[in-house]
């Protein structure tokens, strides 16, 4: 159950944050809806990144490369 919740949470969090940033930038720069779209996909990518980390048991430090290095250590 733990891992399932974890994966779902990471998916939601990444996409939500990405979309939120995109939406905010769109409102600020008046570029509706392009940045929202771009950041939605960036957020999805970040989600995948975070899920990849969670599944591989990497810690949550900033940067995938660092987390991998730390795991190897």
């Amino acid at each position: 159950m733990g891992m399932g919740i974890r994966v779902g949470v990471e998916l939601i969090a990444g996409i939500a944050v990405g979309s939120l940033i995109g939406y905010g930038l769109d409102r600020w720069l008046g570029t509706k809806p392009w940045l929202l779209l771009v950041f939605f996909f960036l957020g999805a990518a970040a989600s995948v990144l975070n899920i990849y980390r969670a599944v591989h048991g990497l810690d949550d430090s900033v940067g995938l490369g660092q987390a991998q290095r730390r795991k190897r250590k």
Binding site: E10, A13, V62
Partner: peptide, 11 residues
Amino acid sequence: ELISYCSRPFS
């Protein structure tokens, strides 16, 4: 990476 960072409090 920035979004990944910002998603931390949410996750």
